[in-house]
Amino acid sequence: MQDDTLNPQVGLAQLAPRRGIAHALQGLQAIVLRELIKFSQQKGRLLSALVRPLLWLAVFAAGFRNVFGVAIVEPYDTYIPYDVYIAPGLAGMVLLFNGMQSSLAMVYDREMGLMRLLLTSPLPRAWLLFCKLCATALLSVLQALAFVIVAVLLGTDLPLLSLGGLNALLALACGAMMLGALGLLLSVYIKQLENFAGTMNFVIFPMYFMSTALYPLWKLQESGAEWVYQLARFNPFTHAVEWIRFALYGKDPGLAPWVVLGCLAVFFMLACWGYDPQRGFGGLTKRGGGPP
């Protein structure tokens, strides 16, 4: 009987999948490290990411601390100050803005930067987009953690050193992935860098203000803003914030994780479809400037 291990064709067939996996992991490592190095060289990027939520926490929350009380509702077991309530929402704000800014970076990279070359590499385009998504989510989580640390130093009482803190970290990561996937999807349609202002006005601000980041849903319903209440209920960002908030206190987040993970899958699949030059709707081939 012939020993198959001495057959060079069999040996190559067995090694090919390993080389494929190694190549894919090498691509993931390269893209993530590139984003981390680029982030470390942009000195003001972390500061600019923290200024917005810290301004809300230090000024807005301080002004409404004694005016806007939060009743005893899940996941809280007692009355809480306003800054404690909005802290998860402000961490979500960091994820939201970084996820949307990733679409701006993707437009630049796709037209003039490294992604223009990467999208023509032998690796599957969906894997390259996933690598980019992982890099974006990692940066988002790091910035959100930096905000949480500063918030605690400013006196916001959050149960970080607990099992709930680890659960909240998972919720942060999944929320970052979902919002990063939304940023990828938006980058399919953003043709020029100047169009990012429209993204701010029609995506970021509505998603943030029509959510539970700043006020609970029952406050919206109680005030008679029924249409805002319904929009907030179906806003994916609401479920990302609620997952973080409930996980932080070790409570059951209900359907929030499933909504976040479901939206992540849908956004990412649509982004992969849009970046496919053969099938993309609003696709790259219709612009005349995208990679082949």
Rank of each mutant, 00 (worst) to 15 (best):
M1G: 10
D3T: 01
P8A: 14
G11A: 15
G11K: 11
A13L: 12
R18W: 10
R18H: 06
G20A: 13
I21M: 04
H23C: 00
L25K: 07
L25C: 09
Q26L: 12
L28P: 01
Q29F: 11
L33I: 05
R34F: 07
F39S: 13
F39N: 07
Q41R: 15
K43M: 06
G44E: 03
G44R: 11
L46A: 13
L47T: 14
V51G: 07
R52Y: 06
R52I: 12
P53Q: 11
L55F: 14
V59R: 07
V59L: 15
N66V: 10
I72G: 01
V73T: 05
Y76E: 00
T78A: 15
I80A: 00
I86Y: 02
P88E: 06
G89C: 13
V94C: 05
V94E: 02
L96F: 04
Q101K: 12
D109R: 07
R110E: 07
L114Q: 14
L117Y: 09
L123E: 07
P124N: 03
R125F: 03
A126L: 00
W127I: 00
L128A: 01
C131W: 06
K132V: 05
L133T: 07
L142N: 01
Q143A: 15
A146G: 13
V148P: 00
G155D: 09
D157L: 03
L158I: 14
S162H: 10
G165L: 07
N167Y: 09
N167D: 10
L170K: 10
A176D: 08
L182Q: 09
G183K: 03
L184A: 02
L184K: 00
L185M: 10
L186D: 04
L186P: 00
S187C: 04
S187Y: 01
V188N: 08
Y189W: 14
K191L: 10
Q192E: 14
L193Q: 09
N195G: 11
A197Y: 06
I204K: 05
P206T: 12
M207T: 02
P216H: 01
W218D: 04
W218E: 12
Q221A: 13
G224S: 07
A225E: 08
E226T: 15
L231M: 14
A232Y: 02
H239W: 12
H239T: 05
P253I: 10
G254R: 07
G254V: 13
A256K: 00
L261C: 15
A265W: 09
V266R: 02
F267C: 14
L270C: 13
A271F: 04
Y275M: 11
P277R: 03
P277T: 01
T285I: 08
R287E: 11
G288L: 06
G289I: 12
P292T: 03
